[in-house]
Write a protein that binds this DNA or RNA. Structure first.
Length: 621
DNA sequence: TCCGAAAACTTTTTT
DNA sequence: AGTTTTCGGA
C-alpha cells in the first residue's frame, strides 16, 4: 500500500524539525545535509528512506543505496528502516559499508575487469600493516620510500598503472606491489584500497554496468560524508555522474577527525559543486540540554565562524554543574577523586556506571593501567573498549557475528526467561539454517532445537560455580550447537582459519576474564557485555555514541601536543568529545601531566565552563 | 649484548 | 611533545 507524499507522516518519532522535513521532501535534487551533533542524522536517513519507499517515489523494482563507513552504522540504519517498512519495501533498502559495496560489485562483475587486472575468483582480503609495506619496500630495495606515503599512493592510483601519470620509478614500484599481491603464495590477496581502484576501473571501462547501477539505484545516501576519502569520492563520481541519481549526503564538517587517515579536506563543498546539491543545515540537538548546547556553540563557532545557532531539545535532568574543568594537583589525586566522584554518583542512584564514559585523546591502554586499579578500589570496573583480548579489541569482538550468534545461546542457558535472547537466537539461527519465515514446520523444529539445547547448556552451567574451565566448556558447547563449519560458511569474514580463530579465541578469553569472582552466569554475561562498567575509549571511538556523563581525562598540552585551535582537527576532536554528553561534560587536568593549553582560557572559560578545584568535587566522608 | 642516538609513533575502518 | 622502538657502532 502506497501513501501519497503529501499525506505521509514520519514514523516512530513525534515530528521532524522543519529543515529535516525540507531535506526529506527534496527528492528531485541532491541534498547536502549538515547534521551537527545530536541532530538525529541516522533517524533522518531512516525517515527519508521510509518516505521514498512508502510513497512509491522509489518504486519497485528500484532500490535505495545507503553507504556508511562502519558496519554498525550500516546495520543500525537498515534496522530502523526494517522497523518502519513492510518487508518487501525494506528489502529494497540496501544499507552497507563502502567496502561491502565495492566488494559486491567486484565479485559480481569480476569477469568484466580488464584482463590484465582481473583477480582470480578465490582472491582473499589483505589488511596490510605498516610492517607489510616496509617489508615490501625493503624487498624491492626502496627503503627511501616511506611506507605511509606508499600506502597512500597505492590507494589513489588510477588504473591502468601505466596511464596513471607516475614517473617511471614510481610506476614500477606500484606495478611490483600490484603483481606481488596477485602472486601471493596462498593465492591473490587484495586490499580494500585495491578493490576500490579495481571497481572504479571496472565502471569507467564498462558503461553498461554503470548504466545498470544507475537504473538500480535512483537514490543514494552517503552517511558521515565528512570522512569520505579522495579515492572513495572518485569512485562515487565515476559510478554516478551523468545519471539521474539523487544523493542525500549527510555529515558534519565540525566532526571531521579522520583527515590524517585520508579524509577529504572539504568534501561538502566539492560535492555541492560536482552534483549541484542543495544544502541544508539541521538546527536541533536532541541529545544535549540548553546549557551544554550553548557551550558547544562557542566551540563550533571557533571551528566555523558562520555556523548557525543550534536549538537544544534535550532536557536538563541533573542538579549541579553540567560542565566544568576539574583541576587536580597530581595524577594520584586526579585518579582518586574521579573514582570517588563516580562512586558517589552511582551510590546516589543518579547514573549507572555504564552511563559515565571516560574519554581520552590517545593511548587508552596506558590510561587504563593508571585508572583501573584506582576505580577497582572503589568497587568499579573500568572497561577499556580498545583493549585486546587475544588479537581482537573488545569493542570489535562485541560487534562480531560470532558474538551475535553465541551470546544469545549463553543467555538462554543462564536465564530461562530471556525473551530478547530468545528472539535473537531464533532470528540468528533461522538465517544460519536457511529457514524461510514462511516455513512454519522449520520454525517449530528450530524452536525445539534451541529449547533442547538451552536445557542441556543450563545443566552444564549448573554443574559448578562459574570458573575458567567451565566457561571454556560452555562456549565450546554453544559453538558445537551453532556448528563452526556452518557459521564460517554463513559469514564470509570467517573463511580464513586465522580470522575465525582470532574471534573464537578472543571470545573465550573475555569469557574467562568475566568469570572471575562472578556469583552466577547472568553476572558473567553482563560483564561480558560491559553492563555496570565504566567505559573508557578514545574520542575517535566515541564518535556517534552518547553518554549521560562524559569525563574527558587529560586536558593538557602534552596530550594535545599538536593542538592549534585555528587549524587542523584538534579542535574538532575536542568538539566531538564535548558533544557526546547528554547531561554533563567534565574535563580533568593536572599540572603533573602538563600545562593547561593556552586557548583553554580564551575559549572555554568565556564559554561558561567553570574551573573547579578537584579536591572539592567529592565531599569528604 | 649494550649504549646512545635517531626515528617512529600517537588518532582507525574494512568481507 | 613525550614515549617507545629501531639502528649503528662498539
Amino acid at each position: 500500500m502506497l501513501v501519497l507524499p503529501e499525506e505521509w507522516l514520519p514514523q516512530g518519532v513525534d515530528d521532524l524539525e522543519q529543515r529535516a522535513w525540507e531535506a526529506l521532501r527534496e527528492t528531485g535534487q541532491s541534498v547536502c545535509v549538515t547534521a551537527g551533533a545530536g541532530a538525529g542524522k541516522t533517524e533522518f536517513l531512516a525517515q527519508k528512506a521510509t518516505y521514498l519507499l512508502q510513497t512509491g517515489l522509489c518504486p519497485q523494482p528500484k532500490r535505495i543505496l545507503a553507504i556508511s563507513f562502519k558496519r554498525d552504522a550500516a546495520q543500525n540504519l537498515a534496522a530502523r528502516v526494517r522497523q518502519r517498512c513492510p518487508q518487501d519495501q525494506a528489502r529494497r533498502f540496501h544499507s552497507m559499508t563502502f567496502d561491502a559495496f565495492t566488494k559486491h560489485l567486484l565479485d559480481h562483475f569480476r569477469l568484466a575487469v580488464p584482463e590484465a587486472y582481473r583477480p582470480p575468483a578465490d582472491y582473499g582480503i589483505a589488511f596490510p600493516t605498516r610492517r607489510d609495506f616496509d617489508a615490501f619496500l625493503q624487498r624491492h630495495g626502496r627503503r627511501d620510500v616511506s611506507a605511509d606515503r606508499f600506502d597512500k599512493a597505492v590507494a589513489r592510483i588510477t588504473l591502468p598503472i601505466e596511464d596513471a601519470g607516475l614517473n617511471l620509478q614510481a610506476r614500477d614500484l606500484v606495478q611490483a606491489y600490484w603483481d606481488d599481491q596477485y602472486a601471493m603464495p596462498n593465492g591473490a590477496l587484495l586490499t580494500f584500497a585495491m578493490i576500490n581502484r579495481l571497481v572504479e576501473y571496472l565502471l569507467r571501462t564498462n558503461p553498461r554496468i554503470k548504466r545498470g547501477l544507475l537504473l538500480t539505484y535512483p537514490h543514494v545516501f552517503l552517511d558521515e560524508f565528512q570522512d569520505t576519502t579522495y579515492a572513495q569520492y572518485e569512485l562515487v563520481k565515476t559510478a554516478f555522474t551523468g545519471g539521474n541519481t539523487v544523493f542525500t549526503a549527510v555529515g558534519d564538517d565540525k566532526q571531521k577527525i579522520m583527515g590524517w587517515a585520508g579524509a577529504m579536506d572539504n568534501a561538502f563543498d566539492e560535492f555541492t559543486a560536482d552534483f549541484n546539491a542543495v544544502r541544508y543545515a539541521l538546527l536541533c540537538n536532541w541529545r544535549s540540554h540548553e546549557a551544554l548546547v550553548a557551550i558547544q556553540h562557542v566551540i563550533a563557532r571557533r571551528i566555523d565562524p558562520d555556523v548557525e545557532e543550534v536549538q537544544a531539545r534535550g532536557q536538563l535532568a541533573v542538579d549541579g554543574d553540567t560542565a566544568a574543568i576539574w583541576q587536580f594537583q597530581d595524577r594520584q589525586q586526579e585518579a582518586a577523586q574521579i573514582a570517588r566522584w563516580i562512586r558517589a554518583e552511582v551510590d546516589q542512584g543518579h547514573v549507572e556506571p555504564h552511563d559515565i564514559a571516560i574519554l581520552v585523546r590517545m593511548r587508552a591502554n596506558n590510561v587504563e593501567d593508571e585508572l583501573a586499579p584506582v576505580l577497582a578500589g572503589e568497587g568499579l570496573t573500568l572497561r577499556n573498549l580498545a583493549r585486546n583480548v587475544g588479537e581482537i579489541a573488545i569493542q570489535d569482538l562485541l560487534a562480531e557475528s560470532f558474538t551475535e550468534v553465541i551470546l544469545p545461546l549463553l543467555r538462554l542457558g543462564a536465564n530461562v526467561r530471556a525473551p530478547e535472547a530468545w528472539n535473537a537466537a531464533q532470528e540468528r539461527f533461522q538465517a544460519l539454517a536457511c529457514i524461510s519465515p514462511e516455513d512454519e514446520q522449520g520454525q517449530e523444529r528450530l524452536q525445539r532445537e534451541i529449547e533442547d539445547f538451552s536445557r542441556q547448556l543450563r545443566r552444564t552451567m549448573n554443574e559448578a560455580e562459574p570458573d575458567g574451565a567451565l566457561a571454556d566448556r560452555v562456549v565450546a558447547q554453544a559453538l558445537d550447537f551453532a556448528r563452526a563449519d556452518r557459521l564460517r560458511r554463513a559469514y564470509p569474514e570467517y573463511q580464513r582459519d586465522a580470522d575465525f580463530a582470532r574471534v573464537r579465541e578472543g571470545f573465550r578469553l573475555l569469557m574467562r576474564e568475566c568469570v572471575a569472582d562472578a556469583a552466577n552466569w547472568t553476572e558473567v554475561l553482563d560483564r561480558f557485555e560491559g553492563k555496570g562498567q565504566v567505559p573508557l575509549m578514545t574520542i575517535h571511538k566515541s564518535k556517534g555514541l552518547e553518554f549521560h556523563t562524559m569525563i574527558f581525562f587529560g586536558l593538557d598540552d602534552r596530550t594535545w601536543w599538536s593542538l592549534d585551535p585555528d587549524q587542523g582537527e584538534e579542535l574538532n576532536s575536542f568538539f566531538v568529545a564535548f558533544t557526546r554528553a547528554m547531561q554533563r561534560a567534565f574535563f580533568s587536568y593536572c599540572a603533573e601531566r602538563g600545562n593547561a593549553f593556552a586557548w583553554l582560557e580564551e575559549l572555554l572559560i568565556p564559554a561558561g565552563v567553570q574551573q573547579i578545584d578537584g579536591a572539592e568535587i567529592v565531599p569528604d566522608g
